[in-house]
Design a protein around this nucleic acid. Sequence first.
DNA 1: TCGCTCGTGTGATTTAAATCACATTCTGAG
DNA 2: CTCAGAATGTGATTTAAATCACACGAGCGA
Lengths: 237, 237
Amino acid sequence: MAVVHSHHPPEDCLNCEHRHLRMFCNLTPEALADYDKIGIMMSHARGAKLFTEGDAARNVFVICFGQVKISSTSRDGKTMILKIAGPGDVMGLSAVLANVPHEVTAEAIEPCTVKTVRKQEFIDFLGRHGIASMHAAQSLSGEYLTVFHDAKRLALSGSAAGRLARLLLDWGRSSANGKPEIRFTMALTHEEIANMAGTSRETVTRLLNQFRRDQWITIRGTSLTIVKPDQLERLTA
Amino acid sequence: MAVVHSHHPPEDCLNCEHRHLRMFCNLTPEALADYDKIGIMMSHARGAKLFTEGDAARNVFVICFGQVKISSTSRDGKTMILKIAGPGDVMGLSAVLANVPHEVTAEAIEPCTVKTVRKQEFIDFLGRHGIASMHAAQSLSGEYLTVFHDAKRLALSGSAAGRLARLLLDWGRSSANGKPEIRFTMALTHEEIANMAGTSRETVTRLLNQFRRDQWITIRGTSLTIVKPDQLERLTA
DNA sequence: TCGCTCGTGTGATTTAAATCACATTCTGAG
DNA sequence: CTCAGAATGTGATTTAAATCACACGAGCGA
């Protein structure tokens, strides 16, 4: 599956995308140089699994290019999609630090490049640079918040409509980093959306059309625009 | 509400309960001594709110004695109880590190004593002791895992029965730290259990009795014993 | 071009569980 | 002890949404 390679060439890392990432955006230059030295870059094809729920956590991953679907599945086959991770997102950190197996599955949904750092190597790095530990802690806080909101959406937004509305809103806000653009691309199937909203595929289809008929959103091809955020917000309860 | 007081006397901290806590169990002696110096001890009466959802995160709290209910409420009044925190649990860490308002409400469900450390004081402490940052990160990983499991329970365990079963099982396992005791005390009302399982009070009552009739659990007073864990497990799906 | 699978759209049916509406039993404050 | 308010128990009713069961079009490899 994974088509690997090449140790990370420090030079071109100086311009590498992973540089402007949440996690290590403002390390000291030395720490940053050190960071560039650890781990290797790996490329994965669409559909490749970076790791699977239950696997021992052997690496920490930082996405440089591409998108990765983070999900979890129950014994009876129901899938919960937690998020679509993109460049800058760190994967597997909590499992590595808590020293437990991966609690989620990470699958490339498009060809992607990922910085891959062996568990111990990463921990050593954190040990060498105290400040980096704080960044890691902050990164985890962010992750925590995300999951927390998911939990809240699932538990409290009584209706399926509410959950879907919340999902779209959250989505619009995050995809437009910075200014609250309310247009974004939805390269997901209704099935996948259903898995994120904790509902069924049919319900997603119906609701999406409902929203469209009510003129709250418009869909052109793969691009979705939220026309009446306030109306969606109202459903949220 | 909060009846405060007295700066933390370092001497008696040497035997203090918070010493053997997950977060800072194996710091260096110096770091530990430093830890004992920061923050103050506060006592709170049953029902007191340590902080409320939406409040600016001004402090990090470490429970020394007592139990604290961690919950979150939606606009329409539905409550989700995330966990009952006990001695050793750290509260407010993610909000402080992510620099966002508290996302949950913490309420004492019995008289309790809590080490309270001002935000900046705590961050400075982490800065002084790089290794402590890693412990903080690990603590967050744990929290993350908890919330993650909650989310999973809510999203994937299709039936109310499944969610309740899972809750009881998780509960039994955690309350018996170490050996898998399956007896534990349930000082919670059906209403509160419902809020944790994401269901209604009536359903909890019915299911609990159902389980009892089927001899899967027994309840004597406030003590609950899981007799047939496997049967409950089966409901989990 | 022909199928084939996949994603989507929509009705009809079923079902789990929330809700409503009480009765009963604890529990603790005065 | 007594009484009021919680907490619990249980039926009847309602409802949201899952499920079932299709039809339709679009893309794609053979």
